Simulated scan of single mutants.
Amino acid sequence: MSTVSIAHENDVELALDSALLFYRAQGTHLIYATQHSARVVDGKPTLLAGVPITLDQLADIADLAARKTSYRGFIHDRVVYLAPNQLAWWVPACTRRVWFNTKDKIGERAGGAAHPPLVFIVNRTSWSVFALRDNTRPGQATKLYTAPYYNVWEGGEICVGNVQTPDAINTDSIKPYEDAFFRSRFTHTNNDRLIHRRGGAERLWLDLLDGAEFPLDRLIDAKQTLAKAIGSSTNED
């Protein structure tokens, strides 16, 4: 059994008090729950007779758990989806500095460049980015496009490498995640089809570093909506 450390402001002695038992109907998601007083009898933990848990009691338990596991506070104005251990937000089109260290014609170079509107999706196991064609807050049915960045896989997942990402997933994580992405060194392409144009992503970023506007009409359809991408991210978690 693993050792568990419980932090408390003062010394406190823990004593066995009660237990919850959950029963599931096989092949379904139906749950029946009972609460039992528990005592140590002759040195052995013992469950006493139980009573059914009411919906109000379940709501109280869920609320107590949510206080420790989910975010509570004012929502960041760019968040489009928020759930425990999952977050999605959008970034309006902007000019922002990027760094490259590649083996192609870009080489080792840094500078300000135009970026398309973006959507980031983060959960406990993955970190993804997609582009938008319209510089407006996306909704569930908004079509997503391939984000034409080096170090991003075809499905939108970002190659983390040695980049430090936030430990927590909440609205306070937005700026650290964006900084981790934009301030990383873009080194190589993980997807051969990042943009519809002659010269591909290499030519695109050379032009953007020289001051060109971002060609939104050249973005490649990612074949999914925002809702579908968030759903896929949830299933992977």
Rank of each mutant, 00 (worst) to 15 (best):
S2I: 11
S2G: 05
T3A: 14
I6S: 02
H8Y: 11
N10P: 01
E13T: 11
L20H: 11
Y23V: 08
T34P: 00
A38P: 04
V41E: 10
K44F: 12
L48N: 14
V51N: 06
I53Y: 00
D56R: 10
D56I: 08
A65K: 11
A65W: 07
K68H: 10
Y71T: 03
F74K: 15
H76R: 08
A88E: 01
W90P: 07
P92I: 07
T95K: 10
V98D: 03
K105F: 14
G107S: 10
E108T: 13
G111K: 10
G111W: 08
I121C: 08
R124Y: 03
W127P: 00
S128F: 08
V129I: 15
L132I: 07
L132V: 14
T136G: 08
R137A: 04
Q140G: 12
P148M: 08
Y150H: 09
W153P: 00
G155S: 13
G156V: 06
G161S: 02
N162S: 15
Q164E: 14
T165R: 15
N170L: 05
K175H: 06
H188T: 05
T189W: 05
N190K: 10
D192C: 11
D192T: 12
R193K: 15
G199W: 05
R203C: 01
L206K: 14
L209Y: 01
G211F: 07
A212L: 06
F214Y: 10
D217Y: 03
L219C: 01
I220W: 04
I220P: 02
K223L: 05
A227P: 00
A229E: 03
I230P: 00
E236A: 13
